[in-house]
Design a protein around this nucleic acid. Structure first.
Lengths: 121, 121
DNA sequence: CCTATAATAAACCGATCGGTTAATTAACCA
DNA sequence: TGGTTAATTAACCGATCGGTTTATTATAGG
């Protein structure tokens, strides 16, 4: 249930929520500011729900200022998503030689330790 | 519907599927090989479904070899996920100074485009 | 031909998702 | 006090998700 990485990927799997993060990457904003670009297409409660998903995933934090709820990006929360991705960087970025070398070391590690999936860091 | 980035994030939002990708990062494998670690916990059709999700997201490709379906990682497909993440790297990785600088340039870009902010503080 | 193996398809099920409308809470302000 | 604004809650809805069981399609091989 508290598979935090899955929660983060799931939170990112929605264009509305990614757009909200995009907005927050330029600075804090309260709920109605965040809602503004979307109110033509969805209701305010829908926005609240999206923000709750982002908040539960740890990607944003909400605070209180009178009747406003300023939201901000929670930068560190992006790190474990990025860290997971990092293991695959070699597959799209490096040269073929280095990919071969990489596969060799991974295979070697596997044979040496008998780790079932190498998914820990 | 074909929001390909959302599809990819959604495909990654499941530990079983991520483990399958982890396996494939060490080389090709057919369906039953990929299924083996999970057959204690789920049926083979469930595995087939997970693989279909990964395939539709473009993260893997399946080919045919007699009655086997060798699967392999589709490296390039990871790139746009990584590219999206890249915009947020500065928030968890760089120094505070550089973060401030970054925010300034982003804000400048935004103002240049005429999208006014109107925040009062 | 027959049978075993690899994999998928189909139909179904409960839970979660993304949205709605209507009602409610909380704070400011005249 | 009473009205306005900001935001959330609750109840509901259809669609999708992750899983099941059962049946089906291909292919290999004695």
């Amino acid at each position: 249930m508290p598979d935090v990485l899955s929660q983060k990927f799931a939170a990112l799997a929605d264009p509305t929520r990614r757009a909200m993060l995009g907005r927050l990457s330029r600075g804090e904003a309260n709920v109605s500011e965040l809602a503004r670009p979307f109110l033509k297409g969805m209701s305010l409660p829908a926005v609240t729900k999206h923000l709750k998903v982002l908040e539960r995933a740890g990607l944003i934090t909400k605070s209180r200022d009178a009747q406003w709820r300023p939201c901000k990006l929670n930068a560190r929360a992006f790190k474990d998503v990025a860290d997971w991705m990092e293991e695959y960087r070699i597959f799209w970025e490096e040269s073929f030689d280095r990919l071969e070398a990489h596969l060799k070391t991974v295979t070697a590690k596997k044979n040496a330790k008998g780790t079932s999936n190498g998914r820990k860091k």
